[in-house]
């Protein structure tokens, strides 16, 4: 099985350690992982701003980069959601359909494709899980709090629960949005910041030392607030926690 690693543009540029953790984690699990060098972005920043038409060439490039692999795995629910749901404006060739179907968020891939329910990792901290919306409500990585009845458990929670020493804290609002939202963070700065600080208060109030998520974009926003306000919180992508037995240095 040939797995291609998709490292979203901002992770590539600003959070290489998250990409490395993802790669090492998959390799540790015995997977053949490839990294197509020519990848850039899924096009989401353009489309969410209303410039879908201008994103078409980015979509085409994405498909060219990834069409030859069995699976495409990314440490970002949001980008995966975009590939799955918004690549519908380009002609649906066999390659496009293949790429759309086979692109997976990391935790989803681990649990539902590799059928792994526990990762050997150790992370002795109190961790608050921020449930990134596109992963939660878009990809259904878990059941959102709006839906009723028995739903499937969150794949992210499931993996974190298996990490040695890790204590998951319960939040007052289990899955409220952090307010990142791409260009929303800039265009609606006031509301975005307020949403973010409210999330942070919830995590702090409930005793979290570390906030984690499937999406570095939410975390970038939260980290920006944490650092500006000097809050006693660490930010870690879920891949970093799951890979915590491997040493990463860059």
């Amino acid at each position: 099985m040939r797995i291609a690693l998709f490292i979203p543009c901002y992770i590539n540029q600003f959070y290489p350690q998250v990409g490395i953790a993802t790669l090492q984690l998959l390799e540790k699990l015995g997977q053949d992982v490839f990294y197509p060098h020519d990848q850039t972005c899924c096009g989401q920043p353009l489309a969410n701003s209303g410039f879908e038409g201008d994103a078409v060439r980015t979509y085409d490039l994405f498909v060219r980069n990834f069409q030859d692999y069995d699976y495409i795995v990314a440490p970002s629910g949001s980008c995966v959601y975009h590939v799955r749901h918004h690549f519908d404006i380009i002609p649906q060739s066999a390659e496009v359909s293949h790429v759309r179907e086979k692109t997976f968020e990391l935790c989803d891939f681990l649990v539902n494709i590799l059928k792994i329910d526990k990762i050997e990792a150790r992370f002795p901290h109190k961790v608050g899980l921020h449930q990134s919306c596109h992963g939660l409500r878009g990809l259904r990585l878990g059941q959102s709090s709006e839906l009723m009845g028995p739903g499937h458990a969150s794949v992210v929670r499931q993996l974190l629960a298996g990490v040695e020493g890790l204590e998951l804290v319960e939040l007052t609002r289990a899955d409220e949005c952090c307010g990142f939202g791409g260009t929303f963070a800039v265009a609606e700065e006031a509301v975005s910041v307020k949403m973010g600080t409210d999330r942070l208060s919830d995590h702090l109030k409930n005793g979290a030392e570390v906030i984690t998520a499937t999406d570095m974009s939410c975390l970038m926003h939260l980290e920006g607030l944490v650092r500006r306000r000097n809050l006693p919180l660490q930010i870690k992508h879920v891949a970093e926690i799951l890979n915590s037995k491997n040493k990463v240095s860059i």
């Binding site: 490292i7 901002y10 992770i11 590539n12 540029q13 600003f14 959070y15 290489p16 350690q17 990409g19 490395i20 790669l23 990294y35 060098h37 963070a185 800039v186 700065e189 910041v193 973010g196 970038m220 926003h221 980290e223 920006g224 607030l225 650092r227 500006r228 860059i250």
Partner: peptide
Amino acid sequence: NSWGKQRELPAPPGQSFTEWYKRER
């Protein structure tokens, strides 16, 4: 910079993932 009004920008790392990958692998 309306991002930076109340938020820090990410601290820029020395290299991108791609650069790391090319060097390491």
